[in-house]
Amino acid sequence: MSRPARAGSEVSVDKADSASCRIETVYGVSQLTVFSFGPNEQDNILCLSVPTEESRPLVRIQSACYTGEIFRSLDCDCHEQLDESMRRIHAGGGYFIYMLADGRGAGLLTKVRGLALGDNEGLDTYDAYVRLGVEPDPRKYARVLSVLQHIGLSKIELLTNNPRKIEALRDSGISVDRAPLQIDPTPASAQYLEAKRTKFGHLLDSSLIRGDIEGK
């Protein structure tokens, strides 16, 4: 399958430009750091940090979903995952790491083409990418790993349902404990979550999802 072209190839924080500032949000106060690995926005990694004394701090790694996080699309759980992660990290400390990589790294244009296939042909997000000749989840975590190493994190509690993220971090030598992040499905998001569970291998409670699908 083809992979979307990605500008910028540097993966080391030592090669990245960075800037930090204090930021106050509805969740509380944190430190925002931008790591810029190239000339385009998708080459940036954002890190929100909240002080913590935990030896295994809470970490969330999330990639952008403009339709869900900005426009509040109902057919995914991305905004709700962001909201829950930010609440938990600001409550107890930790790190929220944000990849500007919409469409699971395939880009917004590919994502919207996939959504159109869902509208017109009923394809789920996995099968739509296959139809487009794109790897269903082309995200790479080398830059995220470089940021974690720069922060000095060798063991973390990772907010995720995605075993690929856990595997990527563990393969780099980081000790990972998983903290589940399942969002209650809605009739609009249940089929998307079922595709995540059955085709992407996400660690989700099938009984919750199936109930919403059957209730549609």
Score class of each variant (00 low, 15 high):
Ser146Asn: 08
Glu135Asp: 11
Leu169Tyr: 07
Glu135Thr: 11
Val144His: 04
Leu153Ala: 12
Asp124Thr: 06
Tyr126Pro: 08
Gly173Trp: 09
Val147Met: 06
Leu159Ile: 06
Arg131Leu: 07
Gly173Asp: 10
Val134Gly: 04
Ala128Lys: 03
Val130Ile: 14
Ser154Cys: 10
His150Phe: 13
Arg164Thr: 10
Ala179Trp: 00
Asp127Met: 10
Pro163Lys: 03
Ser154Thr: 15
Arg170Ile: 05
Asp177Cys: 09
Asp124Gln: 10
Val134Ser: 00
Leu159Trp: 08
Glu157Thr: 15
Arg170Asp: 01
Asp124Lys: 05
Pro136Cys: 03
Gln149Tyr: 15
Glu157Cys: 12
Arg131Gly: 08
Pro138Gln: 06
Val147His: 02
Pro180Thr: 14
Ile166Thr: 12
Pro136Arg: 06
Ile156Cys: 09
Lys140Leu: 03
Leu158Gly: 02
Gln149Thr: 14
His150Ser: 13
Leu148Arg: 01
Val130Lys: 04
Ile174Pro: 09
Glu135Pro: 00
Val130Thr: 09
Asp137Leu: 00
Gln149Glu: 13
Glu121Cys: 11
Asp171Phe: 05
Leu158Asp: 05
Ala168Asp: 09
Leu123Lys: 04
Lys140Asn: 01
Arg170Gln: 15
His150Thr: 14
Asp127Arg: 07
Ala142His: 14
Leu153Phe: 10
Gly122Asp: 03
Asn162Gly: 01
Ile174Trp: 09
Tyr126Arg: 08
Lys165Glu: 02
Leu123Val: 06
Ser175Tyr: 12
Pro138Cys: 03
Arg170Asn: 06
Ser172Val: 05
Arg139Thr: 02
Val176Asp: 11
Arg178Cys: 05
Leu158Glu: 05
Asn120Ala: 10
Leu169Val: 09
Asn162Asp: 03
Arg170His: 07
Arg139Gly: 01
Thr125Asp: 05
Val130Glu: 06
Asp177Gln: 13
Ile151Leu: 14
Ser172Thr: 06
Pro163Ser: 07
Val130Pro: 00
Leu169Met: 12
Glu157Asp: 13
Ala179Ile: 15
Thr160His: 01
Leu148Asp: 04
Val147Cys: 01
Glu121Ala: 13
Lys155Phe: 07
Tyr126His: 14
Leu153Glu: 12
Ile156Asp: 08
Gly133Trp: 10
Arg139Val: 01
Glu121Tyr: 13
Ser154Gln: 15
Lys140Trp: 04
Ser146Trp: 11
Ser172Asp: 05
Ile166Asp: 00
Tyr141Cys: 00
Leu145Ile: 15
Pro136Ser: 04
Ile174Asn: 11
Pro138Leu: 01
Ala179Met: 14
His150Glu: 14
Pro180Arg: 13
Asp127Pro: 02
Gln149Leu: 13
Gly133Phe: 09
Arg139Tyr: 04
Leu145Phe: 12
Val176Lys: 12
Asp171Arg: 08
Gly133Asp: 08
Val144Ile: 12
Ala179Gly: 02
Glu121Phe: 14
Asn120Tyr: 13
Arg170Ser: 11
Ile166Phe: 00
Gly133Arg: 07
Arg143Lys: 15
Asn162Thr: 05
Val134Arg: 03
Ala128Gln: 01
Gln149Phe: 15
Asp177Asn: 14
Val147Pro: 00
Ser175Gln: 13
Leu148Ser: 07
Ser172Ile: 04
Gly122Lys: 05
Lys140Ser: 04
Val144Thr: 11
